[in-house]
């Protein structure tokens, strides 16, 4: 027993020696008691709504009209897949996720973290401060800043004008690109922090050895660095994707899903169906699909962590 002391290691010595079986059960219950408030809250406000979500998704519940709620089976789902607006939302969500999380935040974050290792100290701290500040700003504030940046009379077009590059009304012509770039601006810091930590853990001898063996910069990156941080890449991609799937405020403030539905990702589509058209049942079915995709990624994330621990 004395050998297992230490955080999380084995059992704690219990006063009173080995008790009988009912005594042990009672003690387990007593020890578990502090978990109870959390469990109750999470059951009521997280598990409850998810269970509701599963139930409502198969009904035609509405907020208005007292016609009552009926069970409609898979009606909501067949309706969704037949609806071009829904397919549009799925496509846009995919574009938004790939463009902003998988390509944008992930690659830019790794790029920044890698470059910072060979930058001078003052530059490094300046860059990380600026990037981190754009990360910690509240979502709505970030949304307004980027709204101002991408507007026709905003700063982006002014910069493009100075550089003699074509300008356009970004929020109108390429709304999904604008909100994706906005999400890159807002979310890159997280990837940068994760990758900075991961790169620091690579022993210097390994990269030096590769350099002595004549491996160029790209070869070193591809054959040495990336394989060594592949777990961080996995975790980072999962967390970014999960976060990006549930982005609502940023897009809502910048474009409200418009013009038309050209930046209406799944969360915004869900909102529109459930609240503006008060089709709670249908909106919940959409939410359930979003939840299912999130759950899938979450399970993948758990598996990644398990190989790491």
């Amino acid at each position: 027993m004395t050998a297992t002391y230490g955080p999380g290691a084995g059992t704690v010595p219990r006063p009173g020696g080995a008790p009988s079986r009912p005594g042990r059960t009672r003690r387990t219950l007593l020890r578990g008691l502090p978990v109870v408030p959390s469990v109750i809250l999470m059951l009521l406000f997280l598990a409850g709504p998810i269970a509701y979500c599963v139930y409502y998704a198969f009904t035609d519940m509405r907020l208005t009209g007292a016609s009552g709620t009926h069970f409609v089976g898979f009606g909501n789902f067949t309706k969704a897949f037949g609806d071009s607006n829904f397919r549009n939302a799925v496509e846009l969500t995919l574009i938004f996720t790939v463009l902003s999380s998988i390509v944008g935040q992930n690659v830019l974050g790794l790029f920044l973290a890698a470059l910072m290792r060979s930058a001078s100290k003052s530059v490094r701290s300046t860059v990380s401060t600026v990037v981190v500040v754009s990360w910690v700003l509240p979502e709505v504030v970030a949304a307004y800043l980027l709204y101002a940046f991408f507007r026709r009379e905003g700063e982006l077009n002014a910069i493009l004008h100075v550089l003699h590059l074509p300008q356009q009304n970004w929020l109108f012509t390429l709304p999904i690109v604008a909100v994706s770039l906005a999400n890159v601006w807002r979310g890159t810091a997280f990837s940068m922090l994760v990758y900075s930590a991961a790169l620091q853990e690579i022993p210097a001898e390994i990269t030096e050895a590769a350099e002595v063996d004549g491996a160029g910069r790209w070869k070193r990156l591809w054959h040495v660095t990336l394989p060594m941080i592949r777990r961080s890449i996995g975790t980072n991609l999962m967390l970014n994707t999960l976060q990006t799937l549930s982005v609502f405020g940023l897009i809502f403030v910048m474009t409200r899903g418009g013009p038309g539905n050209r930046s209406e990702t799944l969360p915004l589509y869900m909102y529109e169906q459930a609240f503006q058209d008060s089709l709670i049942g249908y909106g919940t079915a959409v939410a359930l699909m979003l939840l299912a995709v999130g759950a899938l990624f979450s399970v993948l994330y758990l598996r990644l962590l398990r190989t790491e621990v």
């Binding site: 979500c53 409502y56 967390l239 549930s246 869900m270 939410a287 999130g294 979450s298």
Partner: peptide, 10 residues
């Protein structure tokens, strides 16, 4: 990991 946005309607 679950997207909390999705739970908001229920």
């Amino acid at each position: 990991g679950l997207p909390i946005t999705a739970v908001m309607v229920p």
